[in-house]
Computed example of a mutant assay.
Amino acid sequence: MIVKNEERHLSRCLQSVKGIVDEMVIVDTGSTDRTKEIAYAFGAKVFDFEWVNDFSAARNYALEKSTSDWNFVLDADEYIMNDCGSIIRNFIEKNDRVIGRIKRVDEFIQDGEKRYAQSYLSRLLPKGVKYAGRIHEQVDSDLPRENLDIEVYHDGYVYTDKTDRNLKLLLLELERDSLNDYVLYQVGKQYKLQQQLQQAELYFEKSYHLAPSQSWYRHNLLIDYLYTIIGNKSFEKGLKLIETERDGLADSPDFHFACGLFYMDLIFSNVNKYIHLFPLIEKSFLRCLEIGDTDKYDSVKGTGSFLASYNLGVFHEVLGNTDKALSFYQQAANEQYERAIKRLELLR
């Protein structure tokens, strides 16, 4: 781990791993709170590292201090959710040069309610594997990667705004490599988080045109780009993007969910011009339900289930199809989606 001023989260994180790991190696980059005291209380080996505006440098220093053959990497605002000790042990006993990927569940706020996104991240590393990248550092290795049944919860986005810090470091990276498609994408994400959508769209567009078609993060880029296009009402650009990417993302509920929202905003921006696309709203959300929630892509929980059902309920309620609206709201309510439960109460 690398940490700084994490007294709020660190105990929870270390408590979740103390029965699994042989040693805890924590690199502190300048804490002024009780972070180091808490780490020592859990028996961790704590090392100081002077911050040099480079996350990979700190990560790699921590890896150098490890005496183990395998390293499990966590952040302080993460913690293990499931009983995965035997899964980790079995994986490292059967593998030599394979990287293990964990499922991380990210809590965030959208439209005034809690949402949950999931993604797979390379975190179980054989000795010798290092990181690269000043910010949003990535495991720098060509070794094969395998998804493991290890669930980690992350709620740092809810309690801490790190966009200013991240943006500063990312822009420094771009000074060094102005055509780095991944860094361009991450800059766009930071501007999107700050609601500077015009800037975000510019960087997403640059990344989109540079990113190889098989880039591991391309799905996320396309979804973020499309939501930014919706926010900026860049509708003609959005139509072209959807047309280009529809076949490649045919099995992504997040893509079709964003398409449904796009078509709603598009049509109401100019009903006469776009009314012929009206059936695509329902078609997009129904496609979400056909696919269902999936582990194939990084995804927001509910885009293939209750969120799509709820939007179909809204769609039919607006059209006056009360029975259909009730049916879709009920589907969402069955998964305890609060907004659907409230709509059912009002309609009944």
Rank of each mutant, 00 (worst) to 15 (best):
K94W: 00
V129C: 09
I87Y: 01
N95T: 10
E137I: 00
D155G: 12
I291L: 13
S207L: 14
S284K: 07
Q330S: 14
G133P: 08
A340T: 06
Q186G: 00
R339Y: 09
S305H: 04
G292A: 09
Y159H: 13
L222T: 10
S119K: 05
I275E: 09
K65A: 08
S269V: 09
E137S: 15
H219V: 01
A340I: 08
D251T: 04
K127L: 03
D111G: 01
G30P: 02
L277S: 01
L193N: 09
L222S: 06
H316I: 14
D298Y: 01
T29S: 09
E335N: 03
R59P: 01
S269W: 02
A333E: 02
T228K: 06
P126M: 12
V129Q: 11
D48F: 08
Q118C: 09
L241V: 14
V158P: 11
Q186L: 05
Y263S: 00
F278C: 04
N220L: 05
L326F: 06
T160W: 04
Y203M: 13
R97Q: 08
K127F: 03
A39E: 14
S213M: 10
S66I: 10
E146I: 08
L319T: 01
I275V: 13
E137D: 11
I92G: 09
D323G: 04
D83A: 13
D149V: 09
